[in-house]
Amino acid sequence: MITQYVFYFLSFLAIMFGLMVVLSKNPIHSVLYLVLTFFAIAGHYVLLNAQFLAAVHIIVYAGAIMVLFLFVIMLLNLNKETEPHKNVWLKLSAAVASGLLLVVLVGSLKNAEMIAATNTFDPNVGLIENLGKTLFKEFLLPFEVASLLLLGAMVGAVLLGKKSIK
């Protein structure tokens, strides 16, 4: 029962902070609200007993990626004058596109209740031993391919970051 209330509370926080990311005028405030959103989502992971995912979520997203975002935005020194002014048609088309997306989502979720879960929820699945075994036994190839992808992205970033290639 109490977990249900915690779930609703965390969902409320996540949605509220998510909205604040979009609505706040100052980009620094947006980033800070996004960090809070990540914390709310990490709380959801803890509720699902996936502590490892929660910790990694905080370390990677809130601790590393968002710090870099903050870093870049602070250096750019964005303010009212430098903010690009978008044209009205662009705003209108964005509104129409997101409205269409909403319709599609509602349509696809209409019958979601009728689908029964094929895998029963195992409360221990998120614990680190089980996660490690699953990753290295069942999903070894995708896991290694993902690491190659990350390595490739890293090498690419270093290449792009270099001013001149000899």
Binding site: A55, I58, I59, A62, G63, A64, V67
Partner: peptide, 9 residues
Amino acid sequence: LYLFSVVSM
């Protein structure tokens, strides 16, 4: 990992 996440904060 908890320790590490707090440090990164």
